[in-house]
Design a protein around this nucleic acid. Sequence first.
DNA 1: GTGTTATTTTAGTGACTGCTATAATATAAT
DNA 2: ATTATATTATAGCAGTCACTAAAATAACAC
Lengths: 100, 100
Amino acid sequence: MDVYHAIADANRRRLLELLHQHEHSVQQLMPHFDVTVGAVSQHLKILLENKLVSRRKRGRFRFYRATPAALKEVYEWTEQYRRFWGSRLDRLGEYLDDSE
Amino acid sequence: MDVYHAIADANRRRLLELLHQHEHSVQQLMPHFDVTVGAVSQHLKILLENKLVSRRKRGRFRFYRATPAALKEVYEWTEQYRRFWGSRLDRLGEYLDDSE
DNA sequence: GTGTTATTTTAGTGACTGCTATAATATAAT
DNA sequence: ATTATATTATAGCAGTCACTAAAATAACAC
């Protein structure tokens, strides 16, 4: 799974946002999610595999934090389309779309 | 399917890049892909549903072009992590990772 | 030790993905 | 009209996804 897939899931994006503020253990993350602890752990694993988070061990706890340097690729890919935002170009589609 | 999922697929990102240069009919796109014309058409449909492309009809042809204003959301979401790139922070993970 | 807490892993499940092949639709060429 | 071209829609399929429940692993508390 690449970084684009890693951030495609809303729960994983939420995790990154929370872990960007400060580190959390898994239990500290749980109140923010509606899924089981197993599911959160699986999401963290995917983020870890994509190097979007790191963790340190402290007793029984694993503290995760965001290390989102890998998002640079996504940022730069979207950046090339920047000139489309806020310009008249972004409304062009409406006139052209003949989807019938 | 939301915009994050729409760009998660490499073929769809490639389509956006090609359609950003200038408009293409489906046949003009085909040489750039290894999949069937049906698959390309399905990808274009997903991009269309996410308003990432528009199309105009000309005879039997449908000409597609990129209208990637919807990428603004992704751009802005990644942008909040910008300070991590190029800083020492992005290497912090390596020291902290105790994945054993 | 025994039991409790924190986390990860595994097996199973339903839904979804990306693909193909084929059929359907629409326009153009002869 | 018939045939060819361009595109979309449909059905089916193997693989993946996000999830749960339960088992496994690990460290703490008593």
